[in-house]
Computed example of a mutant assay.
Amino acid sequence: MNLPNKLTLLRVCMVPVFVVFMLTDIGGDANKWIALTLFCIASITDWLDGKIARANNLVTNFGKFMDPLADKLLVCSALVCLIPEGKLQAWVVIVIISREFIISGFRLVASDAGIVIAASYWGKFKTVSQMAMIILLIADFGGIFTTIEVILIWIALILTIVSLLDYIIKNLEVLTKGGM
């Protein structure tokens, strides 16, 4: 197993630990900072594994499958954990997670039809905005940051919808070739 794939697996393994610190008081007052640190490290591995894989020609089918799955696990887990804390409304999380299910299903149908759907810049912007939003929501600095959090929530939500529409519009042939 190559280094990028190990980093992807590390990210997957970090998710339950992150969730424990988000949803319990096992670490006391340090919980949010531990969770924030875990989320940031996991987010960095997302960037790093892709960079290493592309730079060293280490792209594998395992990585193509697991990397986006690991990202979805991390982000969706964080979003769900932020609901009971009152930092995100459930409808926002449902919209974001629904987009992930739709795109995953779309990619599965495309794959069956022999079509590879590459990641788009809109998808990358969406991921970065969601991760930035999650980091600020976990940190909960207050003050002016509360306004920035609200702005980031709306930016992430808009980019989620725009990236979904972008994927569908650019890949309409999947609807006909994939038997949908």
Rank of each mutant, 00 (worst) to 15 (best):
I52A: 12
F65M: 15
T127S: 13
P68L: 01
C13M: 14
V116G: 00
R99L: 10
G86M: 04
W154I: 13
M133K: 13
I34G: 09
V93F: 02
I138W: 07
D166G: 06
T127G: 14
D166T: 08
I26C: 03
I161V: 15
N2I: 10
L152Y: 04
G142E: 00
V116K: 06
S98N: 07
I168E: 05
Q130T: 10
D140L: 09
L88C: 03
I115Q: 00
G86A: 08
A53D: 09
L74A: 11
S120W: 04
G179I: 05
N5F: 05
M180V: 13
F125D: 02
L69S: 10
L152T: 01
A55L: 11
L3N: 07
M1W: 08
K32L: 03
S129F: 09
C81D: 05
I168M: 10
L74D: 11
L9H: 05
I168A: 08
K126Y: 06
S104W: 03
I117R: 08
L79Y: 01
T176W: 13
L136W: 07
L175V: 15
K32M: 12
I169P: 09
T37K: 08
L82V: 01
F141C: 06
M22P: 07
C81S: 15
T24Y: 05
I26G: 07
E173S: 14
N61R: 08
T146Q: 13
L137I: 05
V80F: 09
A113G: 04
F18S: 08
F39K: 00
I52S: 11
A139E: 04
L157Q: 01
I34T: 04
S111E: 12
K87N: 12
I153S: 13
M131G: 08
T127N: 07
A30E: 15
V92Q: 12
N57A: 07
L23F: 10
I115P: 10
F141G: 12
N57G: 03
L136V: 00
T146F: 13
S43A: 14
A156V: 09
L164H: 02
W122D: 03
D112R: 15
F62Y: 13
L7C: 09
T146W: 10
V174K: 07
D112Y: 13
F39G: 00
G28V: 07
M22K: 00
A113V: 04
L73K: 05
Y121V: 13
L108E: 14
I134H: 01
D25E: 14
L9S: 01
F62M: 09
E100Y: 02
I102Y: 00
K170N: 15
V75G: 02
G143Y: 08
Y167C: 04
G143A: 12
K126W: 10
K51F: 14
A113C: 04
G143R: 06
A132S: 14
F141Y: 15
M131N: 13
V128S: 09
W122C: 11
G143I: 03
K170R: 15
I169H: 14
L73E: 01
V174P: 05
I115W: 01
A42S: 15
S43I: 02
L9R: 02
G27V: 02
I153N: 04
V15K: 06
F141K: 09
G179V: 03
A53N: 01
L159D: 04
L73V: 00
G143C: 01
V92G: 08
K177M: 08
I153T: 15
F125N: 00
T176R: 15
I155N: 08
K51A: 12
A42L: 09
A139D: 06
I94S: 00
L157V: 00
V116A: 14
